[in-house]
Nucleic acid binder design. Sequence first.
DNA 1: ACAGCCATGTAACTTGTTACATGATTTT
DNA 2: AAAATCATGTAACAAGTTACATGGCTGT
Lengths: 198, 198
Amino acid sequence: MSVRQSLLAILDQGPCYGYQLRAEFDRRTGSAWPLNVGQIYNTLERLERDGLVARGETDAQGHVYWAITESGSAEVSDWLASPVQRGAAVRDELAIKLALAATLPRAEIADVIRAQRESCLARLHDLQDPLDDPASPDTADGLAGALVRDALVSAVEADLRLLARAEERLARHPRHALRLELDRERPKRGRPARSAVV
Amino acid sequence: MSVRQSLLAILDQGPCYGYQLRAEFDRRTGSAWPLNVGQIYNTLERLERDGLVARGETDAQGHVYWAITESGSAEVSDWLASPVQRGAAVRDELAIKLALAATLPRAEIADVIRAQRESCLARLHDLQDPLDDPASPDTADGLAGALVRDALVSAVEADLRLLARAEERLARHPRHALRLELDRERPKRGRPARSAVV
DNA sequence: ACAGCCATGTAACTTGTTACATGATTTT
DNA sequence: AAAATCATGTAACAAGTTACATGGCTGT
């Protein structure tokens, strides 16, 4: 929902045309996530279908302006007022992968962790590259960009910490523990063939 | 892709039937993300369409078994060998929201941060509830569950740290900076109406 | 003239997700 | 007998994403 909500939030500031929306999104998110132009028009039509925006006039240059509706404005307020829900519904890919790898025949998981750490370190290195942006953090542009970089760094650091914790856990447990009693009192009648069991 | 890949990885351990797959996914991910059964069957059909799994026999009880193909096995290997890509392509909802809120008329962003922090703290409290799971961390079940909990906690902690950094940045900058020169040398011809500008 | 950006749009597709229908078996 | 769980499936939809077609305008 981020793209959808973002476009809506931008339109809440005043009418825009499609191409402009892309530039605004790009600018306001520090150009961290390139957005295909086509998606703008798709999203606008879906927002229109849902009564959150309305097609406005076309100016002399042929720009098709879109304006937010009252419902749209209300949704923006809701969005800003309600926290981003993570963990509960949203699946964390790395978490799932680690957990799953832990239930798969051993040896794998150590490799998974190693590869992931390398990737994270490389990313961290990239993020700390000073070439990032010429915008100073004194403008809102720079501020938004700085916030985004903070977020990206923060996320990578969290991943690295998680990987460390995972390794600790693995080291603390005897390696045979992983294959121990995987099929306990599970489905009773639901596991006739033993094939699926680790 | 997490569900898709997870099911494939489980099937790589041996044939399963649909309902069983849900139980396995549930078990191997510490029951952190409930999975609608219907999605299993959808995903299986899509995996079959892509030649990654094949319908197997039906046993006496009527269970329809699915088996992984060679391509499927190869994809599992690929999955396990390649790190989860975050940040680059994947949009971070909270990051986007903060960055965007920073470019919106002031006052909002402080509220956003406050609301998000409350949500994170509440979640952290929930996660640290000891009622979580009765499974000991000595089995792979418990290990997987522990890894998932680690991941969830880690993510929330990262969010909290990010919120703190964001507040620091906001405090460090004069509040008028946010509205300063938002429309610099941007689209040249692309911003005729001033409406969209903050 | 030509390359490249600005600008709008369309079509197709992916994964995730839910709601529902259906029946068998098990538990209470 | 009724309620719950097991089990398979179908239909529809949401949001994201890409590739492509089509022009106009701009700079070299």
